[in-house]
Nucleic acid binder design. Structure first.
Lengths: 245, 245
DNA sequence: GACGGACTTTGCGCTGGATCAAGGACCCCA
DNA sequence: TGGGGTCCTTGATCCAGCGCAAAGTCCGTC
């Protein structure tokens, strides 16, 4: 049902787990930091960093843990979330190569972070990082701006969670993900979804069944195509309309 | 129904609009900046500021407008929100004395801000503000930390919007407001609610009817007392439990 | 190549909160 | 003291999305 027999699907549509999110480990750090920062700032930060590797499902840090590090994701994808005592979970976002984690430099992490598939990151010791940027106002300002953009996206998210329907949530999620992928140089048509349906549900304030049903319906309507490991966006215009601000 | 005849209510419970939120205009700026910042940082910022006064409902700035100013609220309360083309609204938060607005220093405002009742703020010209803090790394770091706290609260809000029931939303809203009031030296028991039911609804992702019904039920259950212009929290323990993280 | 486990899809009945509709309280101003 | 506007409350009904249950799919492993 999800792949129509007459549909031409350009390779790769086979589930190569996280394939598009792994760009070769050697270059990853370079790619990542250059995407987010000017050369000169990268040169300042680079010497402080140490590599961290995570296997599928491994935790990078836990909510409320003392935040002694700042991270920059270099490959793979991470899930950021909070959990209530009774098990209800809110996935506040996903992190991809180039994203900073813990950049607000608070004493404790605001969320937990774990890996979807395998992932790597640069770790910076927080106090050293703080001292360093204190000596580089331009860099600090740049990092502040990145935090400001995250805050702005958080407000988009509030609107999404508080005032939009299931279909709009799914649409906005997919279009937003596509935009982020394009910005880091990944496919714009076939979206890899390294997170599961349950992660998407807990991100959008829905249940896994509603996510599944809504995706199925969009597939049936020819709006998108569910492929193993992800989704192909077909009717971009309609998706854009349903996720429009 | 909302005020039980046998309940002793300490004055003031009469609706003095925004009474507790107006602390005398002359001292307001001092109070505000001293609350948020150390003395030395206040002395740096103070000379750049100009007073702005807003009447009830007046707009301080609009979403997507070029952000040429940073503000620090000195009296009253503001509503921060986004609106979708079809009229659906998400109130992303409320601002009280001491709060900064536009601190992420992006080119455009992420939300609209208007006054609930009358309000005043300090206005800083954005570029001058930026230049100034570039020369004061400690101050910039402090402001960055404030932004980080706002981001953390935004994530609380996502959890609230995505995963909690109407009653939990109301409970968490009231307890959170109380905590903020305490921090700026206002009453801890009788909460003034300068925003209307519709503002609360649009903040919590509910309808005005659900907000009204839920408050009525909590009143009936002896959990709180609806008084003109606000609410008195009676069963703090139960409220804390229902809003617990 | 078939067994087991994790994830996804689908059907069905249910419910929390939305929607529609009607009053009620309060306030400003005449 | 009364009339009109705004906001709030309450009741009745509806429905989008939830919760449960049962297949179905995919994948790794032995």
């Amino acid at each position: 049902m999800s792949i129509h027999p007459l549909t031409v699907i350009p390779a790769p549509y086979r589930p190569i787990p996280n394939s598009l999110l792994r760009n070769g480990v050697g270059k990853a750090r370079l790619i990542s930091l250059s995407a987010a920062l000017p050369l000169v700032e990268r040169d300042v930060l680079e010497p402080l960093s140490r590599r961290v590797s995570l296997a599928h499902g491994e935790t990078l840090y836990g909510q409320d843990e003392p935040a002694c590090s700042v991270f920059n994701v270099t490959s793979g994808a991470l899930r950021l979330y909070r959990i209530l005592p009774d098990g209800r979970r809110q996935v506040t976002g996903f992190a991809f190569p180039g994203d900073f984690l813990g950049l607000s430099l608070l004493d404790r992490f605001a969320v937990s972070a774990d890996a979807l598939g395998s992932a790597t990151a640069c770790r910076f010791e927080r106090l050293a990082f703080k001292d360093l940027i204190c000596g580089h106002p331009g860099l600090m300002m740049h990092l502040h701006e990145i935090t400001g953009q995250e805050l702005s996206r958080a407000k988009d998210m509030m609107m999404l969670l508080g005032r939009r329907t299931a279909e709009e949530k799914i649409g906005a999620f997919l279009v937003g993900l596509q935009e982020r992928y394009v910005r880091i140089g990944l496919s714009a048509v076939t979206l890899e979804l390294p997170m599961g349906r349950l992660d998407i549900a807990d991100h959008l304030g829905l249940t896994i069944e509603t996510v599944s049903r809504t995706l199925s319906r969009l597939d049936r309507d020819g709006c998108l195509l569910i492929v193993p490991g992800g989704v192909r966006l077909l009717d971009q215009a309609r998706l854009a309309r349903m996720s429009a601000h």
